[in-house]
């Protein structure tokens, strides 16, 4: 207990020194990673050219890399995010008119920490403070779909181009879909008690965060997020490794390739009921891409898995009537389809 108390204490008392040391150790570890994992694979009594060798190499190389990247980025984002509480986001969005507010809501969705279990209280809180319905949806679509976990995995496994592309497309889908839901004037399809709630004036406490508060927030984010998603990452990378090692080259081209027009809608239909998160699905998606699947199809699959989940619909049913949920799903799915087709056509 004393050791833990001590080790928690010095980053708090010397946050600058801690951050500098942490950054240096992180970079050193990251540099040492590639030679270390190559040496490890070479030391294994497995032929590297064999199916098993290929699978093992993928697993042993990508797992530590992704976990290290994730820990670093989640820590930094935890420090940044500590300034963006849902309460403050609500103050920023309350009373704005649609349009620019949809853009703001989607962007704030990226940086505001969000768990899909908070979807309902957050939704109610927004509506109560007079945030327009479409703007609320822009936030609710962006928050789970575009987050640091998804972007880190994309960056680690695909590179920064695809990560940026996903960020841009995810935001566009959230902004447009929210705007359309707003245009449809569906306030009548909120559950009656939600519609009749007394309006409140949104306020938020003025946060005065010291650097050591932020370091604490970084630790908390790592504990919470990395502690929760690492099994998904391991499982995802393991499945990806099997695909890498055993599925024949170009096998996916026939079912998820560019030429199959039906592959994009199929990817969305298959993706919605799948309940996993970005951490689990992205390594699988990377392996599919390597086996000839088209990028647009793969992006559509990924977005539908992450953005539209059946359990979340069930939870939202507590505040929305079926018609509004159906509209929400329909509009978002249409946006994702568009992303898939545009990419397959352009690239």
């Amino acid at each position: 207990m004393h050791v833990i108390a001590l080790s928690r204490k010095w980053p708090d008392t010397h946050p600058r020194a801690f951050l500098a040391l942490a950054a240096v150790s992180w970079v050193a570890l990251y540099w040492a990673l590639i030679p270390a994992s190559e040496a490890l694979v070479a030391a294994l009594p497995v032929d590297r050219a064999s199916h098993l060798g290929g699978a093992l190499q993928f697993f042993l190389y990508d797992t530590p890399k992704v976990l290290l990247l994730l820990t670093g980025i989640v820590f930094v984002m935890g420090m940044v995010n500590s300034a963006f509480t849902p309460e403050r986001t609500r103050v920023l969005l309350a009373g704005r008119t649609e349009g620019i507010a949809n853009v703001m809501a989607a962007s704030l969705g990226v940086v505001t920490p969000f768990c899909s279990c908070s979807a309902v209280p957050l939704f109610i809180g927004f509506v109560q403070a007079g945030v327009p319905l479409g703007v609320t949806f822009s936030f609710l679509i962006a928050a789970p779909m575009v987050n640091e976990v998804a972007l880190t995995l994309l960056f680690g496994l695909f590179g920064w181009r695809i990560a940026l592309l996903y960020l841009g497309l995810g935001l566009s889908v959230a902004i447009l879909a929210g705007w359309i839901v707003g245009r449809l004037r569906m306030e009548a399809h909120l559950e009656d008690w939600v519609r009749d709630m007394p309006r409140i004036v949104a306020t938020a406490d003025d946060l005065r965060l010291t650097l050591s508060d932020r370091v604490d927030a970084g630790f908390a984010a790592v504990r919470d997020i990395v502690g929760r998603v690492w099994p998904y990452i391991l499982a995802g990378i393991a499945i990806g490794a099997v695909i890498h090692g055993y599925v024949p080259e170009a096998f996916m081209a026939s079912i998820m390739g560019k030429d199959a027009w039906w592959s994009v809608p199929l990817a969305v239909v298959v993706g919605v009921p799948m309940y996993t998160n970005a951490a689990g699905v992205i390594p699988i998606v990377q392996a599919l891409l390597a086996k000839g699947a088209a990028l647009g199809t793969v992006l559509a699959f990924m977005m539908s898995v992450i953005a539209l989940s059946l359990p979340e619909m069930v939870i939202l049913r507590k505040v929305l009537k079926v018609r509004l949920i159906a509209t929400f799903v329909g509009v978002v799915a249409a946006g994702i389809l568009l992303v898939g087709y545009v990419f397959n056509a352009v690239l």
Partner: peptide, 15 residues
């Protein structure tokens, strides 16, 4: 019950 969230003014869960 989501109405309880409103009663306590909670926007995040668990609370």
């Amino acid at each position: 019950d989501p109405q309880q969230f409103v009663a306590y003014g909670v926007m995040r869960s668990p609370a």
